[in-house]
Amino acid sequence: MTLLSVRNLKVSFDTETGVVEAVRGVSFDLGRERLGIVGESGSGKTMTGRSVLRLIRPPGRIEADEMRFDGVDLMGASETQMRALRGRRIAMVMQDPKYSLNPVMKVGAQLMEGLRQRDGLTRAAAHIKAVEALEAVQIRDPERVMLAYPHELSGGMGQRVMIAMMLIPNPDLLIADEPTSALDVTVQAEVLAILDGLVRDRGMGLIFISHDLRLVARFCDRVLVMYRGKIVEELAARDLLHARHPYTQGLLNCLPRIGGPRQPLPGLDRSADWAV
């Protein structure tokens, strides 16, 4: 079943020096699965994720032939309709907990805000739900974390708090924009296991945006590789080592490997036709 379908998505910005096209005609379908979007900085992967929630401010413009989520036309929806979707049906985990949590509000208050405003829960009921949400992302001492300010948490804890917050309304689609880039390998593995469990148990759709090809391949079912606003290759994650597109191959080859040869790492060749 298709949860989200996107046809010919374009994102452009009017600047003093002319129009900058950040996304140039992206199309994909998503079921209840884990879809990875990989690319370097500036490839348009984050803009693609944000467009789904129409979270691009002027002078940015979103155009698409079609963008449909579970029967709702996202391009034609009013701002009120979009607000009803955001958070409740489609949630987004941002890259950096340092910048995405409110620094002057305790974690507990931030978690409970949505529950009280949106769901109209009492303070006590919201508290119970918030603690449950923290437990679901394997925070060991949720009562202490509820009373902490974001700067008192480590990066991994902050990231888990954000995931917990996004999962409280039980969304159908989660867009995770580099959710683990700021984390260590060991914490990264934990956060991925949490996301993995949620996709499996709740049947949620997941768009996982990352610049790390190896990570995406290990974690997702399907991978879209983006370069300069376009999808250059789409493939099943297990076939990644047999990627055909020179850009995907280049991205793979330029990563050092344990026990690999000591020669200089191959750079990316950007002179070919596809790179223009």
Binding site: E40, H211, D212, L251, C254, L255, P256, P264, G267, L268
Partner: peptide, 15 residues
């Protein structure tokens, strides 16, 4: 840094 830029920087350091 991005993967491709990381490769260039590591090569530079080794050289």
């Amino acid at each position: 840094l991005d993967a491709s830029v990381q490769a260039e920087t590591l090569n530079l350091l080794n050289r």
